[in-house]
Computed example of a mutant assay.
Amino acid sequence: MTAAASRTARLTPTVLLSLALVYVVWGSTYFGIKVAIGSLPPLGMLAVRFLLAGALLYAFLRWRGAPAPTVQEWRSSAAVGLLLLGGGTGLVTLAERDASSSVAAMVLAVSPLFAALFARLWGERTGGREWLGIGVGLLGIALLNIGELHATPLAAFLLILAPLCWTFGSQWSRHLPLPGGLMGSAAEMLAGGLILLLLSLGLGERWGTPTAASLWALAYLTVFGSLVAYSAYMYLVAHTRPALATSYAYVNPVVAVLLGVGLGGEHLTGLGWAALGVILTGVVLVAWPRREGASGTQASA
């Protein structure tokens, strides 16, 4: 049985729980990042976040008797960590210096489209309803960007590059020899955190005196954004089709906008609120389970 065939099209309780965690928690991390980098260096903050989360998860799993990753698995984990955590999360964090948390989440909603395109490199297919859902979701993102939330050209470029790195790394990870279960998440966070630390040192980032708000945000990002939601996402990557695994990118803007407007003083026009309904329609089209006998289910389930 191929890797594609082993992934389910059914919304099992575990899949639903993982989706809920990724939808809600990652939607809130955009605002959390904005607060954290208020007094912490962007890449250095991420390095601490992922090294702490990875070390805690790794120590717990080893205590429970999980085998340590092999040399080959560490290499694969480093590649995935570089693309997802360095290129994906790292570029988003750098962009949020000059962009609102709402804009960051909205631009990243192109992730399902990139995921579907990259999945085809490995022979996986995307169904017609999924393409329709992706198109509807992107229409909602276009409507949101007509509003009053804007980013600088550099920040916009970083926000486009980030999902390219993230989705390519996600699809490639399905075909790499990674540690099994949660040990894969731990190894990727440790490797990615180390890469981010080296980048922070190489770029000469300086640490000042952090505010209490930044430290609380860092703690939230470490526990919920990394330990909980990242592990849930990697489960989805391994067990569901690409469009469903990345459908969080349509819900995250809803959560991010609500937090940005409610707590961060960001502004959203009436057109933007209407666009959120379009985005949620795209989510339903992407996430709705296929019929078991539908053409192409085995290739992309």
Rank of each mutant, 00 (worst) to 15 (best):
A53Q: 03
Q298T: 04
T8W: 10
A212W: 14
T209K: 12
G260Y: 07
A105N: 13
F31P: 01
T269Y: 11
A142Q: 05
L11C: 07
S18I: 04
S102T: 06
G128N: 09
R129W: 15
W216D: 05
P67D: 08
L158S: 01
Q72L: 14
E205Q: 12
F157I: 10
A9G: 14
A294E: 15
G147P: 08
A274R: 03
A162L: 06
N145D: 00
Y23A: 06
P163L: 08
W131H: 04
S214W: 07
Q171T: 08
G296Y: 06
F114N: 11
T2Q: 13
G81K: 00
A104C: 02
V284M: 00
P289F: 08
G137Q: 12
E292I: 02
A105K: 11
G127S: 14
A53D: 10
E188P: 02
A20W: 05
I134D: 08
P210M: 11
P153E: 15
A232D: 14
G133K: 13
L159T: 07
V257P: 15
I37D: 05
R290A: 15
E124P: 12
V228G: 09
G180K: 10
G128A: 15
A232Q: 13
A219V: 03
G225E: 02
W216H: 06
G90I: 01
L259H: 08
A238S: 06
A186S: 15
S200H: 03
G192R: 10
G277H: 13
W74L: 07
L197D: 04
R97K: 15
L85S: 01
I160M: 06
A99C: 05
S170H: 00
L139M: 08
S6D: 10
I146F: 14
L161M: 10
F31D: 11
A78S: 06
G86A: 09
L258T: 06
A287C: 12
P42E: 07
G128Q: 06
P242M: 03
T211P: 09
S173K: 00
L16F: 12
S247V: 10
L82H: 01
S28F: 09
G137D: 14
T8H: 00
A95N: 03
A95Y: 04
R120A: 15
F157V: 13
A301I: 01
S226H: 09
G270K: 11
M1D: 04
K34P: 12
G180A: 15
H175Y: 15
L271V: 00
T126H: 03
L16C: 12
R97N: 14
H175V: 01
L132I: 09
L113I: 10
E124H: 03
L182T: 07
R97W: 08
P69Y: 07
G123L: 11
A66T: 11
T281F: 13
T211E: 13
L176I: 02
G208H: 08
H175I: 02
A245F: 12
G202V: 13
A249K: 02
Y230W: 06
P179Q: 10
W26R: 04
T152K: 00
P13A: 09
A115N: 11
E148N: 14
V254M: 10
G123D: 11
E96M: 06
E73H: 04
